[in-house]
C-alpha cells in the first residue's frame, strides 16, 4: 500500500509539473463559460428577431400582427437581401420573411439552419400569431414535455463527461505510460522492490483522480446534482476505472509518447462521436452500443437527464468493470513481458 501511494503521489506530481492538471481543470471551465454564453436565460433571449424586406409588399394583417406582438417579435427592416444575409450570419437577426418563389403570394422564412431550435421558435411564434389574427382556436399540441430535463448545460453534460473521461483515458494516460517507457523510468522503478501490480494501481489512481477532479469541477461550476447520487458516483468510478485501465493498456502498445498520442486519437474519436451523437442518428444509435463508451454515456444520460437509477443499468456497470479488469490484466501481462521497453 505504501509503495502504491508513493507511486501515485509521484504520478500526480508529474501531472502537476507537466501541466496535465491545468488542462484537466481548464476544459470544464471552458465548457462552463461557453455554455453560459449559449444558454441565455434573460428575457431578451425569448424574443424572435425577424428581418422584413423594405421593398416587399407584405399583407397588411401580417405587418399589423407583427407590430402588435412587439414583446415576442422584434422587427429589423432591411434594404436588400445581401444586407439581410449579413445580419443573419452575424446572428443579429434569427430569420428573414421574404417572398416564396415556389408558391407565389405566400412567404418563406430564410434562416441559417432549417433544423435548429431558433427556427422552431420562429415558426411557433408566427403560427401563434396567425391563429390569433384569424381568430382560430389553439393547436392540437399545445405543449412539449421533454424526457430529458434541464437546460442545454445539463442536457450536454453527459457528452462533456464522456469527452473528459475519454480524453484522460485515451490521450493523457497512454502518453504518460509511453513516456515512462521511452525514458526508461518504468525500468528504473522496476529496479526497486515494487511489484508490477503496484505500479499499475498507481497509474489507475492517477487516471481516476484526474477524471473525478474534472467531473467534480464540471458539477460545481454548473451546480448540477443528480437525483440518484450513489448510482451516479458508482458509474463515474466504474467508467474512470475502465477507461484508465484501457489507456494504460494503449500506452503499453506504444514505444514512445508520439505514437501513444496517435493511437490515442485513433481510439478517442470513434469512442466519442458515435456515443455522443447517438441521439441524433438512428444509424449511430445502432452502432454506438457496440462501443464501451456507450455503456458509460447511456447510464450517465439516464441518471442525469431522466432521473434513472442503477437498478436498470447493472449490465452497463458490470460491463465497464469487467472490461477495465481485462485491460488491467493485459497491461500486467505486457509489463511482465517488458513489452516495447
Amino acid at each position: 500500500m505504501r509503495n502504491i501511494l508513493l507511486l501515485a503521489f509521484n504520478d500526480l506530481a508529474i501531472a502537476l509539473k507537466n501541466k496535465t492538471f491545468i488542462l484537466i481543470l481548464f476544459i470544464p471551465l471552458f465548457v462552463f463559460v461557453s455554455l453560459n454564453l449559449i444558454d441565455r436565460t434573460d428575457a431578451g433571449a425569448n424574443i424572435v428577431k425577424i428581418g422584413l424586406m423594405q421593398g416587399y409588399a407584405y399583407a397588411p394583417e401580417i405587418t399589423r400582427s407583427i407590430s402588435a406582438a412587439e414583446k415576442i417579435i422584434a422587427v429589423t427592416w432591411i434594404q436588400n437581401e445581401n444586407e439581410g444575409m449579413q445580419l443573419l450570419k452575424d446572428r443579429k437577426i434569427d430569420g428573414i420573411l421574404t417572398g416564396n418563389e415556389a408558391a407565389p403570394g405566400s412567404l418563406a422564412l430564410l434562416v441559417l439552419k432549417k433544423e435548429s431550435l431558433h427556427t422552431i421558435a420562429i415558426v411557433q411564434s408566427f403560427s401563434a400569431l396567425q391563429k390569433a389574427a384569424e381568430g382560430r382556436g389553439p393547436d392540437w399540441i399545445t405543449g412539449i414535455i421533454s424526457l430529458h430535463q434541464g437546460d442545454i448545460q445539463r442536457q450536454t453534460l453527459p457528452t462533456w463527461i464522456l469527452m473528459l473521461v475519454l480524453l484522460i483515458g485515451f490521450i493523457i494516460l497512454p502518453a504518460q505510460v509511453a513516456e515512462e517507457k521511452e525514458k526508461k523510468l518504468l525500468l528504473a522503478l522496476l529496479q526497486t522492490p515494487i511489484h508490477e501490480v503496484q505500479w499499475l494501481i498507481a497509474k489507475l489512481i492517477l487516471g481516476m483522480v484526474l477524471i473525478i477532479s474534472a467531473v467534480l469541477l464540471l458539477h460545481l461550476l454548473g451546480n448540477f446534482g443528480p437525483v440518484h447520487l450513489f448510482d451516479y458516483i458508482a458509474f463515474i468510478i466504474a467508467g474512470s476505472f475502465c477507461f484508465s485501465a484501457y489507456g494504460i493498456f494503449l500506452g503499453f502498445l506504444c514505444r514512445n509518447q508520439a505514437s501513444a498520442r496517435t493511437l490515442g486519437v485513433i481510439f478517442y474519436l470513434p469512442h466519442l462521436l458515435p456515443s455522443a451523437m447517438s441521439d441524433v442518428s438512428q444509424k449511430l444509435t445502432a452502432v454506438a452500443p457496440l462501443l464501451p463508451s456507450y455503456q458509460l454515456y447511456k447510464p450517465l444520460q439516464a441518471i442525469l437527464l431522466e432521473d434513472g437509477s442503477m437498478a436498470s443499468m447493472s449490465f452497463d456497470w458490470i460491463y465497464l468493470v469487467l472490461l477495465g479488469s481485462l485491460m488491467f490484466y493485459l497491461s500486467y501481462f505486457l509489463m511482465k513481458r517488458r513489452w516495447l521497453m
Partner: peptide
C-alpha cells in the same frame, strides 16, 4: 544496482527528490 548508459531520472524533479523517491521505494 544497474546504471544504464543514458541516465533515467525524473527530469522535472530535483536530485534530492529523485534520490528520496527511490530510497522510499527501496
Amino acid at each position: 544496482g544497474f546504471i544504464p548508459e543514458v541516465p533515467n531520472l525524473f527530469d522535472f524533479f530535483s536530485v534530492e527528490y529523485n534520490l528520496k523517491l527511490f530510497a522510499a521505494l527501496s
